[in-house]
Design a protein around this nucleic acid. Structure first.
Length: 704
RNA sequence: GGCGUGGUAGCUCAGCUGGUUAGAGCGCAUGAUUCAUAAUCAUGAGGUCGGCGGUUCAAGCCCGCCUCACGCUACCA
């Protein structure tokens, strides 16, 4: 058993709010796990913080006409406080703009630099803005997309067609700083030699062996995590640039690196370390014990987009440094969809954490209702889907009808029959609750294995067991015959023990409800380590709630959403459903993209558009999207390679009239020279249709 | 095209290193019950475990081929 635990959750990027998918991916599971460890009395520290560097933040600041500092302050506060309100119980939520983090990152860099062998320097050509006298990050350059012709494509990506680009590919590139044409200029950067770590990484991930010793059980890692890592390693690792020419970030601590900062991916994971250091400072602790002691278990909670980073890149950095522990497990979650589709801020699809709290502010138990729905549908091994229908079902049928109702039944009956005191019973806790204890142990085992969905179902099974037990004994029947029947006391005594146990077991999942349950049965707030104590007590036959213990007045834990007498909660949920409908409706009548910049007739007249007919079509080998077409143009035939294989079957194309661009420069694709381009139109669903003259109209005639 | 992950009851998903009649929750049907938030409890119906072929005494689980979904990647003139 490990002496202590260090838990991390992915650092949220401080240029936007987080949605429910993020919460379900990296924060809620970690919170459950950490709360559970605390209940067991473990020495655990859970760190997180805002990731506040990178070009995306400076771009956003520029767009909004504010400083980067204002952006990160805004989202740091927003995310931090939202987490807090949802009961996400970090031990420390730091930020990478803090001086301590800069110092930690620079020290880390220097250690590797001076140690030698980990870095290499490379000269590359990069765009440079002469007016502003600085190199331009990819996103600081805009131009015409070479693939779709979109006029405002970024240097790393075109937001119109989604292509990944490099700044060099852009047509008519211009700097977003000065608006002028940037020049290519040489610059020097440092690269981390990731490739040299390939060997041990493979053994570590595949077999769990590190430095010749068993480090962890590779079978305890999720399949999709190991799969993706090995796939990456098979593809071969490349050195990665760790510096950038950018005015925003952590300065590279070398005299010859003026104006350069650490690439954000390099400093961000070090944020886990600085967050721990800051926590230790403020709490009089030794941070190094948590990062360097062999008896510390390190676990990273992340989403699947971060797997390679936390299983390959960061471990390589830590190993290169030499003093740090490597993670024992990286239980990455997959993605959460929202009502069948991906979360999309721009589309307005989905709901952000702080929006939820705002929209549901009049909803009782809004935090636990959300947490519960997300846990029940957590994307542990495959993508999952959040649906409001299920939100209602989980809340009403499981939290209210099963758990809430059981607690209520027990409290009501105790008040009714025993004047609000735990009865004196004549039953063995050890025997009477043996099955319950087994279930509780199963629950803890599931938490140990990061199976949060199963664990929360087991919680419900315990509550169900209580309901069944009540039903089997039916004390209300016995009471009619003989109010002093000892079986009534036994039954309620055991039921109260179950409620007491549930008050502890439910805390990691629904921490806002747990204290309410405690109050209902007259117990003080939960103490660290109390679950471990309770389990030990039950195992040795000691009750959690002694006879005579005062029980509180009954009070409902969960007000149901589907409630004949009060539809206010349903209204709140229905508002969300309506919003989604509106998004869908709006998209059907949606306006089309704005026209591209004006051109002259001469520009247009350069195009030679002609009618033609497809004679033959075949699939291009080893390409998903390409078809090789032979097109009749009247006076000649052309070979044209077109990216339409996913829309049309080759056999249905011969005879299809088309319009082609006849004077487009030839281009070789997958070894075939394409002599032109077929015109198609694409709608919002991505469906393609040919632009053409009627069949048999004639080939090779001009189009204008 | 390559790689990874997944395709199990109407819906959402469990099924560890292959081993007896394939599981859970919801939904559905029938019954019991009334302490409780029209809650609870019991019983039942419902599956060619994506398809085809193979290995094995034995396959949902292993192998091959095919197919569909998601992700990464190549291609998209």
């Amino acid at each position: 058993m490990s002496k202590r635990y260090l838990i991390t959750s992915a650092l949220p990027y401080a240029n936007g709010a987080l949605h429910l998918g993020h919460l379900a991916g990296a924060y809620l599971p970690a919170d459950i796990y950490v709360r559970y460890l605390r209940l067991l009395g473990k020495d655990v520290v859970w760190v997180c913080g805002s990731d506040e560097h990178g070009a995306a933040i400076t771009i956003r600041a520029k767009k909004e006409g504010v400083t980067p500092q204002q952006i990160i302050d805004k989202y740091h506060e927003l995310n931090k406080s939202t987490f807090d309100r949802l009961g996400i119980s970090f031990d420390y939520y730091h930020r990478t703009s803090a001086p301590l983090h800069h110092e930690t990152s620079q020290d880390f860099f220097l250690k590797l630099y001076h140690q030698g062998g980990e870095f290499e320097e490379r000269e590359i050509e990069q765009y440079y803005d002469q007016d502003f006298d600085q190199f331009l990050a990819d996103r600081y350059i805009v131009g015409t997309c070479p693939k779709c012709g979109h006029g405002e494509a970024y240097g790393d990506q075109c937001e119109n067609c989604g292509s990944d680009l490099s700044p060099i590919e852009l047509i008519n590139p211009r700097s977003t700083l000065s608006g002028k044409l940037p020049v290519l200029k040489k610059t020097k950067h440092w690269y981390f030699k990731l490739d040299k770590h390939e060997g041990w990484l493979r053994q570590w991930i595949d077999e769990g062996i590190l430095d010749g010793a068993q480090h962890h059980d590779p079978k305890a890692w999720k399949r999709h995590v190991v799969g993706q890592c090995l796939s990456w390693l098979d593809g071969g690792l490349q050195p990665r640039a760790i510096t950038r020419d950018l005015p925003w970030g952590i300065p590279v601590p070398l005299p010859e690196a003026k104006g350069k900062v650490l690439y954000v991916w390099f400093d961000a994971p070090i944020g886990y370390i600085s967050s721990t250091r800051q926590w230790a400072r403020e709490n009089g602790q030794d941070w190094e014990l948590y990062w360097k002691d062999k008896d510390t278990t390190l676990i990273h909670f992340i989403g699947k987009d971060n797997i390679v980073f936390h299983c390959i890149v960061f471990p390589a950095m830590l190993k290169a440094h030499g003093e740090f522990n490597l993670p024992i497990n990286v239980p990455a979650n997959q993605f959460l969809n929202f009502e069948g589709q991906k979360f999309s801020k721009s589309r307005g699809w989905g709901i952000e954490q702080h929006e939820y709290l705002e929209e549901f502010k009049d909803f009782p138990n809004k935090e636990d209702a959300l947490r519960y729905a997300l846990i029940r549908n957590m994307p542990e091994n495959k993508d999952a889907d959040f649906k409001w229908d299920e939100f209602i079902d989980f809340h009403d049928k499981e939290l209210a009808d099963n758990l809430g109702n059981f607690v209520n039944r027990v409290v009501v009956l105790s008040n009714k029959y025993f004047d609000g005191k735990a009865p004196q019973a004549n039953v063995s806790v050890k025997e009477g609750l043996a099955e319950v204890l087994t279930l509780a142990r199963r629950l803890t085992a599931e938490l140990d294995g990061f199976s949060f969905r199963s664990a929360v179902l087991t919680l419900m099974e315990i509550s169900s067991w209580g309901n069944t037990h009540l039903q089997d004994v039916s004390p209300w029947k016995l009471y009619k015959d003989n109010p002093d029947d000892p079986a009534i006391k036994d039954c309620l005594f055991l039921s109260l023990q179950i409620v007491a146990l549930l008050s502890l077991l439910c805390e990691p999942f629904i921490p806002f409800t747990a204290p309410k349950v405690r109050r209902l049965i007259g117990l003080p707030d939960i103490q660290r380590g109390e679950l471990q104590e309770a389990l030990d007590n039950l195992a040795s036959g000691v009750e959690l709630l002694p006879a005579g213990h005062p029980i509180g007045a009954p009070e409902l834990l969960f007000a149901k959403i589907i409630d004949r007498k009060d539809d206010s909660r349903l209204m709140i949920v229905n508002r969300q459903r309506e919003k989604l409908q509106q998004v869908l409706t709006a998209e059907q009548t949606k306006e089309r993209p704005p026209a591209k910049p004006e051109i002259q007739y001469e520009d247009f007249s350069k195009l030679d558009l002609r009618t033609g007919t497809i004679l033959a079509a075949e699939k291009v080998p080893k390409a998903d999207k390409l078809l090789k077409l032979t097109v009749e143009l009247g006076s000649e035939q052309r070979t044209i390679v077109s990216g339409i294989a996913q829309h049309f079957k080759p056999e249905e194309l011969p005879g299809q009239p088309v319009v082609i661009v006849a004077n487009l420069a030839p281009r070789t694709l997958k070894g075939i020279e394409s002599q032109g381009m077929i015109l198609t139109a694409e709608n919002e669903k991505g469906e393609l249709v040919f632009v053409n003259a009627p069949k048999g109209w004639g080939d090779g005639f001009g189009v204008k």
